[in-house]
Amino acid sequence: MARFISGRAVAVTFGVLALTLAGGGFAAAQATTAKPVAQTGQPGARPVASVGQPTVTPAEAAQAKAALREGVSPSFVAGSTSFAAVSSAGVLLRGRDSVSATRYGPGQYQVIFNHSLVRGGYVANIGDAADCCVPPTGEVSVAPRLGTPNGVFVQTVDSTGAPSDRPFHLAVFTP
């Protein structure tokens, strides 16, 4: 059977898409002074009431390690996409390779997967928990979960930039 799209073409396409969505600009390194602990979280485009990621508790670290120890599911293929659909209450509704979701506070969530996400890419959007409806307005940011190689930190805000609980869909691309 003929192969129409090579793996390299797919990788280049995702790279171009990521650069396009990120603005595709260049950044220059600047010398900075050490920031106070309260300012060393996830940066946002607008100032929000939250100051970053909550600290990983020993119980959460143990849960994440247990998910890695249990092994990768038979459906996981390197270079594939894992996903999670999470409610505004932080409940994992459905997903592929996702193990759990946790809500920390207004608009702050953690999603754990059953494989390492190091060197992976994350894309999220505000999405309705049901399969029928238009989601509420707002914005979403994603980042690696600090101290958890198989976790993603998700922050949601309303249209004014205030932290707000929003359901979301998260896709993780792993090499």
Rank of each mutant, 00 (worst) to 15 (best):
M1G: 14
R3C: 06
F4S: 04
I5F: 11
G7A: 14
R8H: 06
A9R: 13
A11N: 01
V12F: 00
F14C: 09
G15E: 12
G15R: 08
V16K: 13
L19V: 09
L21G: 11
G25C: 15
F26Q: 12
F26K: 11
Q30P: 01
Q30F: 10
A31M: 09
T32K: 14
T33M: 06
T33A: 15
T33E: 04
P36H: 10
A38Q: 13
A38T: 09
G41K: 08
Q42L: 03
P43R: 12
P43T: 04
P43I: 13
A45W: 09
A45N: 14
R46D: 11
A49H: 14
A49T: 12
A49R: 15
A49P: 04
Q53A: 08
Q53C: 06
Q53F: 05
P54F: 12
T55F: 07
T55I: 05
V56Y: 01
T57R: 06
P58W: 05
A59H: 01
A59Y: 07
A59T: 13
A61Y: 05
A62K: 11
Q63C: 00
Q63A: 14
A64S: 05
A66R: 13
A66P: 04
A67Y: 02
L68G: 02
L68T: 02
E70M: 07
G71Q: 07
S73A: 13
P74I: 05
S75K: 10
S75P: 02
S75E: 12
F76M: 13
F76R: 07
F76I: 09
V77P: 00
A78I: 11
S80P: 07
T81C: 07
T81Q: 14
F83H: 07
A84S: 04
A85S: 11
S87C: 11
S88N: 06
A89T: 15
G90W: 00
V91I: 14
L92W: 10
L92R: 15
R94D: 13
G95I: 03
G95C: 05
S98C: 01
V99I: 06
T102G: 02
R103P: 05
G105F: 07
Q108S: 15
Y109W: 02
Q110T: 08
V111P: 04
I112P: 02
I112R: 12
I112S: 03
N114L: 07
L117R: 08
L117K: 02
L117A: 00
V118Q: 15
R119V: 08
G120H: 04
G121K: 12
V123D: 09
A124P: 00
N125V: 13
D128R: 06
D128P: 03
A130E: 11
A130W: 11
D131V: 14
C132L: 15
V134S: 10
V134L: 14
P135D: 09
P135R: 02
E139K: 08
V140W: 00
V142M: 04
V142S: 04
V142A: 01
A143R: 06
A143M: 00
A143S: 15
P144G: 07
G147M: 10
N150M: 06
G151T: 07
V152A: 12
F153M: 03
F153C: 00
V154H: 04
T156V: 01
V157S: 12
G161S: 11
G161I: 02
G161Y: 12
A162I: 09
P163H: 09
P163A: 12
S164F: 05
S164V: 05
D165E: 06
R166T: 06
F168A: 00
L170Q: 00
L170V: 01
V172M: 02
V172P: 04
F173D: 03
P175K: 10
